[in-house]
Design a protein around this nucleic acid. Structure first.
Lengths: 235, 235
DNA sequence: GTTTGACCAGAAACACTGATTTGGTCATGT
DNA sequence: ACATGACCAAATCAGTGTTTCTGGTCAAAC
């Protein structure tokens, strides 16, 4: 990572901090420049506009989430609960990706007019559906309900888990990391085919899971690089 | 039901229709009066203010939801899936209660400044927790996770299921009534203790379930009557 | 060659005014 | 006794003008 790239990350770190606190609408380019210790003109050496900076930030956050998942499950992605618990932990650790998933307008603000949230997370249900399809084909999860139903159940489980802390009384709100473990284990139960994995199953599951996450991480990395890489002279 | 009470219901029916379409903020007392076929002053014979009318509407909707659940499960509340599927169907059929649960400001609008949504659904997690506690005490559901965790999981499952249709691509959105059946069956899986119910279990489960829902319906009925019953001269 | 921050056009926010709408009241009509 | 809708105070809205702020640019400084 050279100095220019390091500086870009410092700028994005500053932007993440400010936007995390104030939201996109209330965060100015000058605020970000000041917090990053650069002049405002420097920001425009990296991105063409404020909206492009924010998009790069969201892409970085999301790529980071998938890299985090890759690391969490690298050793032992051999049960549904392990994988989905890891996924929940990683999403929890990436608040901007969480805000995109929840369409949280306090964070996203007017940016949704530049880039719709579903465009930022556009591949999520499709590549994920492919992963479930493979698990179904290999009889690793139940197949007595439709693929669409399974995608909805899992997406809804994440939505509900992310919304719950703001809508439930504190005494019924389980803190992290327990909440992610609960979510992971619940999804495992919902997908369970009814018989435990044997060694062959575990190997097949591991292969499918690693393939899915590596593919997703690569996809997100390409989008991130696209958001970071262009310069004004390439116009 | 005498004529005065029947007129009150016609007014609330009109209010439900308008607020369902336009939300609380965009619905005037005159709109409601016109739709109900009465003069504006007539509205104030029943409720002291526009906000009180709306509260009565929400209470009626919620009491109706619990009555609907009572009817759905009256015959055979003998499995977790049956009960939670019925609950999901009933909630789906009561859009105002759904809006309260989701804190949907498109519907609730400025009314949240009169009465916070958690005050309208205040007993939900508490009486529901009591129900789960009884099921746990009688070993009808798993007890290897905490009561708080179970309340959160179920509340989150409903939240996610209600949010999912607006955030997922249509091809991954399962329509009603299948979505409620999926939700009910998923909650059953998440609570499952691992061994099927025998006849004694079914009887115990039925007793606990009927007790919970009858208690809840009675509680909601009292709140509804309180919202409907007072007049100006009782001040 | 790269960074900077003064600069500017346009956007946003604000204050004010007059017009319109609405919640709630109550004298009148039935 | 009950229902009504004209009425009024208050709230809301629309429009205008002014002030302030900000995104983006680029000549000057380093």
């Amino acid at each position: 990572m050279d100095d220019r790239e390091a500086r870009a990350h410092r700028i994005l770190d500053a932007a993440a901090e400010l936007i995390g606190q104030l939201g996109y609408d209330k965060t100015t380019v000058d605020d970000i420049a000041t917090a990053a210790g650069v002049a405002k003109g420097t920001i425009y050496l990296h991105w063409r506009s404020r909206a492009e900076l924010f998009e790069a930030l969201l892409r970085r956050d999301r790529m980071g989430m998938f890299q985090d998942i890759d690391e969490r499950i690298a050793d032992a992605p051999d049960t549904l609960a392990t994988v989905f618990t890891g996924f929940a932990h990683s999403l929890h650790a990436c608040p901007l990706s969480k805000a995109v998933y929840l369409r949280d307008l306090r964070v996203l603000g007017k940016f949704v007019h530049n880039r719709a949230p579903e465009q930022l997370a556009e591949a999520m249900p499709y590549t994920f559906a492919g992963y479930l399809e493979r698990l179904r084909a290999e009889q690793l999860i139940r197949t007595d309900i439709s693929l669409a139903a399974q995608v909805q159940l899992i997406a809804a489980a994440f939505l509900g888990a992310l919304h719950a802390p703001t809508l439930l009384p504190a005494e019924f709100t389980v803190p992290e990391p327990v909440a992610s473990e609960l979510l992971g284990e619940s999804i495992a139960r919902v997908l369970d085919r009814g018989t435990p994995f044997d060694e062959t199953d575990r190997a097949a599951f591991r292969a499918a899971t690693i393939a899915y996450f590596q593919k997703s991480t690569a996809l997100e990395r390409r989008k991130y690089l696209r958001a970071m890489g262009h310069t004004k002279e390439s116009e």
